[in-house]
């Protein structure tokens, strides 16, 4: 009994180390894909830049609607671009997994002694690095176009935290769908699912400007909380729909943190169940 317990205790760190090593290897492979197949990664990185720029220009007039929390459209749309880019960085790992499934490379990974968790964690780590890269580039472009940080350093922390969180959720979603579909049909659904969930929030307009059905849906959508948390360094803080000034507050943060944790756990479970089904 004692020896079994000792053995279990001895195995736990070893397993963790193996998982970590295998996940790191898969992460590096995920990052190398950027240079090996740039045509698959760079559109996903350019998209949020274009989105920030295009939305700011196209929807510039929306800042004139009474109740809009900033007079700069780039302040409103750049954080959306960062989050969207991070989400697509995560989903890109789902695309890569589909390719591995189609070519049979993933079968070789499954036959290897790599722990199952590392097959999820590796792409997740890669997604975090990819999302950080995308967030830095998109935010840089946003500042170059006149975005004004009104919430100080904490505002940037909120933006990057939101980006990493949404990348985690998107990776789990992408991997789960890749395990289910095992071909490029899954790719369209990955993108569509993300687009829909992100746009059914305050992506385009704040709750105070919305009319009709979307107001109710966006109020319930957890992505609204993540966007509120990520944007607070760039827009005026509102309480009960009234603008009270700039700054990062706990009031605009806690909902986002809960949404990130909840959605991340759900997405990772979804991915892990997909992998288990593949093994069955």
């Amino acid at each position: 009994m004692t020896s079994t317990s000792t053995s279990t205790f001895a195995h736990a760190p070893a397993t963790r180390a193996t998982t970590s090593r295998a996940a790191s290897g898969l992460m590096m492979r995920g990052l190398r894909t950027i240079t090996r197949l740039p045509s698959a990664f760079f559109p996903a990185m350019l998209m949020p830049i274009f989105q920030s720029v295009a939305f700011s220009g196209t929807f510039f007039a929306i800042t004139h609607v009474p109740g809009f929390p900033t007079d700069r459209s780039i302040n409103w749309f750049m954080p959306l671009g960062v989050l969207m880019g991070s989400a697509f960085a995560g989903v890109g790992l789902g695309f890569s997994l589909i390719r591995d499934l189609e070519t049979g490379f993933f079968d070789r990974l499954r036959m290897s002694p790599a722990p199952r968790n590392s097959l999820i964690l590796g792409p997740m780590y890669a997604a975090w690095f990819r999302s950080l890269f995308v967030a830095v580039v998109v935010a840089g472009v946003g500042f170059a176009l006149g975005a004004r940080l009104t919430g100080g350093v904490l505002g940037m922390v909120m933006l990057f935290g939101g980006a990493m969180g949404i990348a985690t959720v998107a990776t789990g979603w992408g991997l789960g769908l890749a395990f289910i579909f095992q071909d490029m049909r899954g790719a369209a659904i990955m993108q569509l699912g993300l687009f829909i969930s992100m746009f059914l929030s305050t992506a385009q307009a704040p709750l105070s400007v919305m009319t009709g059905w979307l107001h109710g849906v966006a109020s319930l959508n957890p992505i609204t909380n993540i966007l509120r948390m990520s944007r607070q360094g760039f827009v005026n803080h509102t309480v009960n729909g009234h603008t009270v000034g700039p700054g990062v507050t706990w009031h605009d943060t806690w909902g986002g943190l809960i949404a990130i944790v909840g959605l991340s756990v759900a997405a990772v479970i979804f991915a892990r169940r997909g992998l288990n089904k593949l093994d069955a």
């Binding site: 197949l37 045509s39 698959a40 996903a44 350019l46 697509f88 695309f95 490029m184 369209a188 993108q191």
Partner: peptide, 14 residues
Amino acid sequence: SAEAVQGVFPLLFV
């Protein structure tokens, strides 16, 4: 590459 073609969609959309 179908992946590369799919990747163009966001750019076209934007």
